[in-house]
């Protein structure tokens, strides 16, 4: 019997009778992070990292039964040892380590290797079997240095301010929005937030996350006050009537998909910034090497291409289909979070 297997309901540990990020309602669910394709409603009991607890309550309901753990803290269930380890994806995101009789598996959820300054940085965890996402598991995806990207964003904002335009910057409301916010140069002008993002900011601030000052966009703000400012908005707000009050404006979007020209063109925003919370091609290869694992299971993304590549590299690799939407996350997550909000 494998320590973790893929069932109709999700990633399952049969010995402990525990699921990881299940998509159908189950009794016991360990959750890697608060994105809606990983943290789904309807489970009887949730366990996640401390920083994800409030996010889960906010998105799934205050009444859910949820236990928080610290990074590295372990707990036993039916002889199986579980622990959470930093995944660097968003605040509260964790890889889940599962150990039984000396055999170690890691389900990494979503992760990235760069330290974004906000989520605790990714830490490699030694294991025998590693379950990895491959949202951007193609060699054409190589992230530029995030520091440079943040500089570009601030420069763009500054140029817009000089041209008398409002800057509308889009990123999904849990994770990307706060990462952007953390690196904005507040000396340029005021930062405004779309309601979906501000709701999430409030949840995070209550949990002790320190975020720069923001102001929620409301109907009673005078149009003049937006001048020279930057508005953080979820992707779903781009192109909607909601934007009208900011005219004249320039739109930017921050996403890993912006690495390809076709994607930039189709979004038809003024600027695309390449900034992702998922691991890129060099990153996913490094991560796999550092786990020391021989057995690699790929989920969401370019699974078949990436699996073929891993097989050629000598790994014992296979692809599993899941209902994680990592490949859609960056573009559509905001829609989900608004529903949840």
């Amino acid at each position: 019997m494998a320590l973790l297997e893929f069932t109709e309901s999700g990633i399952y540990c049969p010995i402990a009778d525990i699921y990881i990020d299940p998509w159908r309602p189950v009794e016991r669910a360990l959750i890697t992070h608060g994105h809606s394709d990983h943290a789904r409603p309807g489970h009887q009991h949730y366990a996640c990292h401390h920083d994800s607890v409030n996010i889960l309550r906010f998105r799934l309901g205050q009444e859910i039964s949820v236990t928080g753990y610290g990074y590295g803290e372990t707990f036993l269930h039916r002889g199986v040892r579980f622990s959470f380890h930093p995944a660097g994806h968003i605040i509260g995101s964790a890889q889940i380590r599962v150990e039984y009789q000396g055999e170690v598996w890691v389900a990494s959820g979503d992760y990235k290797l760069e330290d974004d300054g906000l989520a605790p940085a990714y830490e490699p965890v030694k294991c025998h079997a590693f379950i990895t996402e491959c949202t951007f598991g193609l060699p054409v995806y190589k992230w530029p240095d995030p520091a440079t990207v943040h500089q570009e964003i601030n420069q763009w904002w500054e140029n817009n301010r000089k041209a008398g335009k409002v800057s509308i910057l889009s990123g999904y409301s849990l994770g990307k929005a706060q990462r952007l916010l953390h690196h904005l140069d507040a000396s340029i002008g005021p930062v405004f937030t779309h309601g979906a993002i501000e709701n999430m900011n409030e949840v995070l601030r209550e949990s002790g996350v320190v975020l720069p000052d923001t102001r929620r966009v409301t109907a009673d703000i005078n149009k003049k006050e937006y001048k020279g400012g930057l508005v953080l908005a979820p992707p779903s707000a781009i192109g909607s009537a909601w934007q009208k009050k900011f005219q004249p404006f320039s739109e930017g979007i921050a996403s890993g998909w912006m690495a390809l020209r076709g994607a930039r063109r189709r979004r038809s925003v003024d600027r695309g910034f390449i900034l992702s919370d998922h691991v890129d091609w060099p990153g996913v290869n490094t991560a796999i090497r550092e786990t020391g694992a021989q057995k690699i299971i790929t989920t969401h993304g370019y699974t078949s291409i990436f699996t073929k590549w891993l097989l050629e590299q000598g790994y014992q690799a296979s692809a599993e289909s899941t209902q994680f939407e990592g490949e859609l996350n960056e573009m559509s997550e905001a829609d989900n979070s608004e529903k949840a909000a």
């Binding site: 193609l138 020209r261 076709g262 291409i305 073929k308």
Partner: peptide, 18 residues
Amino acid sequence: LFEDSYHVVGDLAETIAN
């Protein structure tokens, strides 16, 4: 893998450049 990447990118010049 180059060809698969090219298929996703949809443009040879860009695939090579990236």
